[in-house]
Structures are given as C-alpha cells and as structure tokens.
Nucleic acid binder design. Structure first.
Lengths: 182, 182
DNA sequence: GCTCGCCAAACAATCGTTTGTTTTCGACCG
DNA sequence: CGGTCGAAAACAAACGATTGTTTGGCGAGC
C-alpha cells in the first residue's frame, strides 16, 4: 500500500495522483482503500516519513562512528546516494512532495530534515577542528553543496546505468573532498 | 498572467493549483481566464519555458565568451544562482513541474535542458583540454555536481538572507573549482 | 457467529472548460 | 470634441467528469 503510493506519488506527484489511480494499481475500488488508511494525506505522510527515516538512519550511524571526518563525509555521501537510489520513489516523494503536507505533519518532517542537515554540518566541523579540512572552509556552504549533490540524485539517476550508486557516491565525494581538504 | 501562474505553480504545484486559485489571484472569474490562454497546460508551458530561457540565455553568452575555462565555469555557476534567485518562481516551476507537461511540449523543454547540460560539459572539457582542470577529471560527474549545486538552490534559498546570490554562487564555484583544478 | 476486507453506490464539492451575454475601451469619423 | 463601432475582456451560468470520503451490505475465514 505505502509502496504503491510511493511509486505513484513519485511518478505523478501527490496532487496528480487520485485515489482512483491508487485503487487501480492495487486492484481495488477507491473507496475500499479507506479500510486501510485514514486519509490520502496520511498516506503521503507515511511515504515521506519512511523516506526521511531511511536517510536519517544511515546518517546517525555514520556520525556516531569512529573515523576520520573525511571518511565520515565520504560514507555519508555514498550512503545518501545509495539510499536515494535504493528507495528512489520514497526519496523522490520525500524531497518533492513533503511540502504538500499540512502544518502539523510537515513540522515532524521538518525536524528530521533539520537533523539531517545538522549531521552533515557536524561532520564537516569535526574535520575543520581536526585540521583535516581547511580552516577557512565555510561549513554552511560545504554542507549545502553535499546536500545538493545528494538531493538532486533523484532528478537524473535511472537504474541500469553503467556506474553503481556506490561508485557515483565515491566520485562525488572525491570531488567535494578535494575542495575541502587542507 | 504568466507571472501570477509562476507564483501559484511554484507555491502549490501545478496540480495543486486550480483555475479558481488563478482567478482569485487576478481578481477574475475562472472562466474569464480563457480569453487569455488556451488551456491550463499551455500556461504551465509558458512558465516552464520562460524559466528555461532565462537559464539558457546567460549560459550561451558565457560559453561563447572569451575567457579561461575556470572563469567561465565560475560565471556560469554564479549566473545560474543569480537566475534561480532572481526568477525564483519560474525557476522552481521549471525544475519541478515540467514533468507534468504532455509529451510534445515536454520534448521542447527537454531539448533546452539537454542543451544547458551540454554547455556545462563543454566548458569543463575546454578546461581539461587547456590543462586548467585535472586530466583525470570525470567531466560528466563534475557537470552533474555543478548542476546539482545550482538546481537545488530553489529548495533552500529565501530572499533576504545575509549573503547575496552572487556571493553564494562564488562560494560554490570556489569549492567546485578547487576540486577540479589541476 | 463475528470480524474484516471489499464492493457498489452515493455524497457534496470541485475540477477544467465552454457557452451566451454584457461590459469596457480604444480607434476612427464627423 | 462627441459619437459610433468593433474588438477585446469580463461575467454568470452551466457542462460532464472527477475529486476525496462515507455508508450499508455482503461474503469469506478464523
């Protein structure tokens, strides 16, 4: 149910997907879906939240791990792109459609987004403090660059390309780290 | 008309914006809008196309100009972010809602997107050929990184921040160039 | 026998678009 | 300058279709 919703929301957008579309995809009447969900928006929240959790789970693990900051940053970017490609639909909905949530659930997601951004910054700050990264590096911009590279993945990645998500992540990380390292 | 549509489409999404919303914003009955447009989708195309043209116009000028590749690349990224922030609504719709166009108009936009991507790659290839950039630089990934940094701008930029779009662009360019230069 | 999943049908509301009619406005002429 | 005419712009109303959601009943499985 949530997975079918992720596919449709990602392909057609939340507002572009009707309960009819969802019912067709599941072989059910659109009214029958309400035996399983409370509302269409609740379904959107489930998809968006699962996307957020996928990203966060890996990032928290990397932040807590014991490694050089540059290794953590590479792992984070690789993990981000692996997550974005492995759960392409949920990631797309998480990044694109979360703004259509009403205020209360949107705040829940916003908190998770903020936390993710904070993790990226913390790792970069670690690197600056340990003199792995340039002392004059602008942490905010470096973090934004990392997030931009990762978050835009959904827009161009298609399964079956010549490079694996892992390799893509490593290439990105190499470029970014080269600009960041002392 | 197009500008009001850009504002609404960017804030609510194409499918989340009704002709009623547009009429309200313009102080007109929703039926009256059809004296000015052929269809809602035609309106979407106008917004998306104007966004595409803003980006392309600057990029073509930079590509044709006479300068070091690293200068061109910086100008392109700065110009990209200036354009994205100056025309924030049109840029958001261009990047987010273009996929809701039906096949024929979408192909027109796709062509412009492809051309823009090609320009970025051409500039990087120039830099590699002139030995300004590392010989082993992966042109595709460097171009994707530049585009990601620029295209994600709409997602976080809000007017009135402490740094001007120009300064933001320069900071990004500095990071990327540092990773790219020989 | 009772719960659960599903259907068929209906709900009011809204969707994008078309219609016929009226109002507004600028250009032209006397 | 005042008057007239045609085109453009706006309105009110309706079109059929679809929106998300609710309801009552029916049949199968624990």
């Amino acid at each position: 149910m949530v997975s079918a919703a992720a596919t449709l929301f990602s392909a057609r957008g939340y507002h572009g997907t009707s309960m009819q579309h969802l019912g067709d995809a599941l072989g059910l009447q659109r009214g029958s879906l309400y035996a399983h969900i409370g509302s269409k928006e609740e379904l959107l929240f489930d998809v968006v939240d699962s996307g957020a959790n996928h990203f966060l789970a890996r990032a928290e693990g990397i932040l807590a791990s014991d490694a050089f900051a540059r290794v953590k940053l590479e792992r984070l970017l690789v993990g981000h792109i692996e997550t974005a490609t492995l759960h392409l639909d949920a990631a797309t909905v998480f990044l694109n459609e979360w703004r259509y949530l009403s205020e209360e659930p949107r705040r829940v997601i916003q908190t998770k987004r903020d936390r993710y951004e904070q993790i990226v910054r913390l790792i970069i700050e670690e690197g600056v403090a340990a003199r792995e990264f340039r002392g004059d590096a602008d942490v905010r911009f470096a973090a934004t660059l990392v997030l931009s590279a990762g978050n835009w993945t959904y827009a161009w990645y298609r399964p079956g390309g010549e490079l694996s998500p892992t390799e893509i992540g490593k290439k990105f990380a190499e470029l970014v780290l080269r600009g960041l390292e002392a």
